[in-house]
Design a protein around this nucleic acid. Structure first.
Lengths: 114, 114
DNA sequence: TGGACACGTAGGAAATTTCCTACGTATAGT
DNA sequence: ACTATACGTAGGAAATTTCCTACGTGTCCA
């Protein structure tokens, strides 16, 4: 569980890998070649980036002839959003009036004085 | 820009650092010592973990006598949620199961059946 | 059956991360 | 001024990441 979370966050900590996810999101499932053309990188290096995404569960692979079609698997990102949940009120509180948020708090556990 | 995003995701890719954020979220601002007691790690190593969080903008530091009080800075997490936004429809409503169909959708049309 | 194509793995170099011990700096108390 | 406390930096070892070139596997096609 934490292992998965680690892998997902680590996978997202690379502009190349985030761009791959975006390409799959906006362009749908694609073969490796078509994805790789977008990056200034040798093919084996790109394969490794795909492997990181695959092991994080963020993409799936399907074979079609001699091509491999990669597709976005967004489920792990739902886990990221779940993790994010409990923090949300902290930045909403900063962006809005503080009193507005405090009014709706179920319990008060973020005292800011000594 | 992407540099910041990289650092935030990389900072989150460690159970120790995520636990620090949780402790600050649930326990409010705390000195280093009090945080460090929760981890099986030497102090200098823990200082480095804090440095990673600090450089990602996820914590702030304030001096109080010979202590340094760390506090959660959640703003970068808002950036994470923004990044997550365009992926949300992929895990909601099982649209992804249809694969090619969503590729043909002109607008975001997420009916939540089943 | 032979060759081109799509993609991966093998293995290695360089950079980065993460831990450690040793030491430095600043503050507090006596 | 001296000592203890709180925390960081320095520097180094081990593990991991990320890139490369070279090569292997499987598929398509003439």
């Amino acid at each position: 569980m934490a292992q998965d979370t680690d892998q997902v966050f680590a996978a997202l900590a690379s502009p190349v890998r985030r761009e791959v996810l975006r390409l799959l999101r906006d362009g749908g499932p694609q073969p490796v070649q078509q994805l790789a053309d977008r990056f200034d990188m040798r093919r084996p290096s790109f394969s490794e980036q795909l492997r990181v995404l695959r092991e994080a569960g963020l993409v799936s692979e399907r074979r079609s002839g001699r091509q491999r079609i990669y597709a976005l698997r967004a489920e792990p990102l739902a886990g990221v959003q779940d993790w994010l949940g409990p923090y949300e009120r902290f930045w909403r509180g900063k962006l809005r009036a503080l009193g507005d948020v405090l009014d709706t708090l179920p319990d008060d556990e973020h005292t800011e004085d000594t």
